[in-house]
């Protein structure tokens, strides 16, 4: 099989497993390129419609372009959109470094939403190549009733037989894009013609390679103003995609701490 076709087929398989085995289910839509690909794949898996709600955990700190994108494509794609707010920074663990503390607001917002809606499955668009602790994730990854990730004792994953049994009150994170790379994502966006937030395209020598909160995400130097140019740029670079995410660089173990606590 061709590479994109193979990646797509595997993601569709995972999404269909999640929909068949787990209820109730929601999909995180961060408005970034990866989660747009994920929504697109869900439409492929379920023949045009996304049969579960799509959740935006809103820090209130996103770029204006992202909010505009959300309003537009929730309608165009016929999504059952849920928006949940995050608690103010003062309520977050103050032992975390500043950017990580800001990021942890999202975990707190998600936790509240899970408690309210009692979701058993949260579909999230993380990828193994983004970050070293994500590289160690499972496709179906359990979180205990407190929302914690026990990365010291992860379930075995044989072939495509995923963990679909879990204790009451716990939930599963489902990661249909785990096996994709950043380049795969852009090549697929190009192949399928998937809309993305325009901030990814260079203006005045700068573009965003990864989109998070306004105050903790920086653009990179780039002249890549089209998909072809972005793909060419990525084919030539070794720099990490999340280099512009301040929270990743504050302290060696900070991402591990965030994720153990339920961050995506």
């Amino acid at each position: 099989m061709e590479r994109l076709a193979e990646l797509e087929a595997k993601s569709i398989y995972i999404l269909r497993e999640a929909y068949n085995r787990i209820e109730p289910l929601t999909m995180l839509w961060s408005l970034g390129k990866d989660s747009n690909v994920m929504v697109w794949l869900a439409r492929k898996a379920f023949f045009g419609r996304v049969p579960f709600p799509v959740l935006h955990v809103d820090t209130g700190n996103k770029f204006a372009e992202m909010y505009a994108f959300r309003e537009r494509y929730a309608k165009v794609w016929g999504l059952d959109l849920l928006v949940v707010d995050c608690p103010p920074i003062e309520e977050i663990d103050d032992s975390l470094p500043p950017a990580a503390r800001a990021a942890a607001r999202k975990t707190a917002g998600l936790k509240t939403a899970i408690e309210r809606h009692r979701w058993s499955g949260i579909i999230a668009g993380i990828r193994r190549d983004e970050q070293a602790t994500r590289a160690k994730e499972r496709v179906f990854s359990p979180r205990d009733p407190a929302g914690h990730w026990n990365f010291r004792d992860q379930p075995p994953e044989f072939w495509d037989q995923y963990k679909t049994d879990f204790q009451p009150g716990a939930h599963l994170r489902i990661h249909p894009l785990l096996h994709w790379s950043e380049l795969d994502i852009w090549r697929y966006i190009e192949r399928e013609g998937i809309p993305v937030v325009p901030l990814y395209f260079a203006r005045d020598g700068k573009r965003y390679r990864s989109l998070g909160d306004r105050d903790i995400t920086s653009p990179i130097d780039s002249n890549a103003a089209s998909l072809e140019e972005i793909i060419a740029e990525l084919e030539a670079t070794n720099t990490s995609e999340r280099a512009g995410r301040a929270m990743d660089h504050e302290r060696e173990d900070v991402f591990e701490r965030l994720r153990a606590d339920g961050y995506m």
């Binding site: 537009r72 192949r191 395209f201």
Partner: peptide, 13 residues
């Protein structure tokens, strides 16, 4: 193509 958010597929690779 950039800036609009609308993308059409590029030349086949």
């Amino acid at each position: 193509m950039s800036g609009s958010g609308e993308i059409s597929g590029g030349a086949p690779r």
